[in-house]
């Protein structure tokens, strides 16, 4: 009877279940990219170039961690790029203008991002404005505030040379001065540290659980007695916190807060999240996938640059990759 038809269909379904598919795919793509670029150019696997890739991934990766939470709830956050900049500018205000101690400046910068995210959450959950519009508004508000506060000029951290060491110094390198491999900047440690924390929050805490629940079936979550608005606000605030961390890292790396920077970073972060297998329709996603996605993006850009592909074309390729990733997500969804 139909059994011959049913069995082969049932097999791949159980093998390729849930979000694992795209994560494996993204990981394979990352390996393929690395192999292709290292064959194409001997410079690709040079130590300095690898450090360059890691540094380039650090900020985008941290931003993408926050966006992962937001997208799992079925929402979107377009403001993280300029919120990142806003946080950097505020860090400059705290440390350079007000001459507060560096740790206070760092916490102040991160708190700025968290606050912007909190406002996003309130606007979305309480005023019921769709995430796309609410965060688009915040994108402009944060951008404008950065320009106003900095008076359109970069804020430098020249009085506090230690500030730059936060991200660009190498804690591991100073502990093991002999080991050349360990001379990696702290920014990389920040990225993996933040990823571990994000992974813990997503997998083991109440906030992570509700992040999935909201994206899976918001109405059912509400009917189960969960205070949906409160947790949504928490998710956007968390996204803002990661943007704040990204802003501090960016400021440290550039030794300055550049108020005109930032717009466009949100799209890189969203792209990393989607490439990593987090579904834009909500309910599924992983931190591991996002980190892989962030590396796919930066390896691609780096490799194309080494092969002397003009920057304009790098942008075109990035865009095409994002569309491909979303299309794969849709295909996967349609099958089930």
């Amino acid at each position: 009877m139909d059994i011959s038809v049913a069995t082969p269909k049932a097999l791949p379904r159980s093998l390729f279940r849930s979000d694992a598919t795209q994560r494996i795919l993204a990981f394979t793509a990352l390996i393929v990219l690395i192999v292709v670029f290292s064959l194409a150019s001997p410079n690709f696997l040079q130590f300095n170039n690898i450090i360059g890739i890691l540094l380039a991934t650090a900020v985008n990766g941290v931003l993408a961690l926050g966006v992962t939470f937001v997208i799992i709830t079925g929402g979107i956050d377009l403001s993280i790029g300029t919120v990142m900049t806003f946080s950097a500018v505020m860090t400059g205000v705290f440390i350079t203008f007000w001459q507060l101690p560096i740790p206070v400046g760092l916490i102040g910068g991160i708190a700025t991002g968290a606050f912007a995210g909190f406002i996003n959450g309130v606007v979305i959950a309480k005023m019921k404005i769709p995430p796309f519009i609410a965060t688009l508004g915040m994108m402009y508000v944060a951008k404008g505030l950065s320009l106003v506060i900095s008076n359109l000029k970069p804020i430098y951290f020249n009085d506090t040379p230690e500030f730059r060491q936060i991200v660009m110094g190498s804690a591991l390198g100073s502990i093991f001065p002999q080991a050349q491999v360990l001379q990696i900047p702290n920014a990389v440690l920040f990225l993996f540290g933040a990823a571990l924390i994000a992974s813990f929050i997503l997998g083991r805490t109440i906030l992570g659980r509700y992040t999935f629940a909201l994206g899976s079936n918001e109405e059912a979550t509400r009917l189960s007695g969960v205070n949906v608005a409160r947790w949504k606000i928490a998710v956007y605030a968390l996204g803002g916190t990661f943007a704040g961390l990204g802003g501090v890292m960016m400021a440290s790396r550039l030794n300055s807060a550049q108020p005109a920077l930032g717009q466009g970073y949100e799209l890189d972060a969203i792209a990393a999240v989607v490439i990593g297998g987090t579904s834009l329709s909500g309910g599924e996603g992983t931190i591991m996938g996002t980190i892989i996605g962030a590396f796919v993006m930066s390896v691609l850009v780096n490799g194309l640059r080494i092969l002397s592909v003009p920057q304009e074309w790098q942008t075109v390729v990035t865009g095409a990759i994002v569309i491909l990733a979303v299309y794969l997500d849709i295909l996967r969804r349609r099958k089930s």
Binding site: R209, A213, G215, S216, G225
Partner: peptide
């Protein structure tokens, strides 16, 4: 919540 497990659904909230 279809993406959550049975246990996670029962104890949601």
């Amino acid at each position: 919540m279809p993406h959550l497990t049975v246990a996670q659904n029962i104890f949601i909230g």
